[in-house]
Design a protein around this nucleic acid. Sequence first.
DNA 1: TCTGGGGTCCTAGGACCC
DNA 2: TCTGGGGTCCTAGGACCC
Length: 406
Amino acid sequence: MQKLILCADMDAFFASVEQQANPKLRGKPIAVIGSAARTVVVTRSYEARAFGVKTGMNVYEAKKACPHLIFVAGDNEKYTYTCGELEKIYRKYTPDIEVYSIDEAFLDITSTHHLFGGPEALAAQIKREIKDRFSINCTIGIAPNILIAKLASDISKPDGLRWVKADEVSLLLEDMPVKELWGIGPKTTEKLRLMGISTCGALGRTPASLLRSRFGIMGEHLKAMGQGRCERVIAVNEAAPKSIGHSMTLPKDISSRRQIEAYMLQLSDMVGSRARKHGFAGSTVSLTIRYPDFETFTKQLHLPEQTNHTQEIYKAGIRLLDSIKLKDKVRLLGISISSLGRVTGQMTLFKEQAKQKALLSAVDAINDKYGGFKVTWASYSGMIERPKVIAPAWKPSGVRNIKIKK
DNA sequence: TCTGGGGTCCTAGGACCC
DNA sequence: TCTGGGGTCCTAGGACCC
């Protein structure tokens, strides 16, 4: 049976939530940014987009584009709450839902749309319900598969509703730039352009052998995408995570070993505590370092056993750091664990105490090593302002819901 | 005035083995 | 003129997404 997939994508989600929460921000150009010293625009209102304010701009660039731009430090709790409420709305229309990101969801409405007067009526009702409840516009695309549903919503923003029927897919794709497709980014767009392929129509007609020789296993996939075919189905159950990590751009570039270690300790604690909270442990620890010139690299270390203990993660990180000859100051540090497995049993009070003990011994270890220059608990805990803006890819449930302690 | 943070998947290339 | 050549595992890094 022909599937009917609906993609619901909130328009300027974080900015819309902030405008809803604070009437003074409505109708104005606003940019949601992080709270750290060196932050960028995460989302901007449509009023700000009109001035050319773009995601990823630093504050200075954004201000230059729009001098009266209002900056708002993001608040993850508002967004995760709203996301959870949105999911409840979706569930009224079908049980087959994939909450893909904090502002985007896929709904399989194949067997339920008739209960609501058809696909478009169902979509209009969802849009209305979200608008009434949260004053947020969303754009909905409906199509026979996820790829085209997402495309339909992307090209209909903002506040759009588009149903692309199976027999309309070819016409829609014929002159559609390949970069509009989900999974084709700047690099692939450029490679395709050099092959003389710029539209989906052309991509779909390119011999598979040619694409395979240029893109390997992705080649087959690319041809299918050009033809509007997509095998990916809605993932109703959230997949187990493959890695858990945190990274941070430091307030200032640093070279002091003691400072680097203090940040690594806190990152290790953030990773470990999240892993423990969700019952995961990993046997691979990765350290990521970025220099001021943005050169970024990662080194990993395999442990004999899986762990989620702050101190063990930290110690592995230090071993990795010891294996690197730093060529410059450090701009960003990241710690993550992978090769994950579930650990049974909830975190007990005993374990929580053990965790604190481990953390303190790690601080002790630094002090032992650098005797003269004491790292105190206060200097550790006050050293880092924890990020308050959650990444749009975070999810309202499961391990990716990272409630940062205030 | 400089350029965030959370992920997943794929691949190139080296080590090692037979 | 002429280095063998498969296979697997592992690491680092690229590309992409929100």
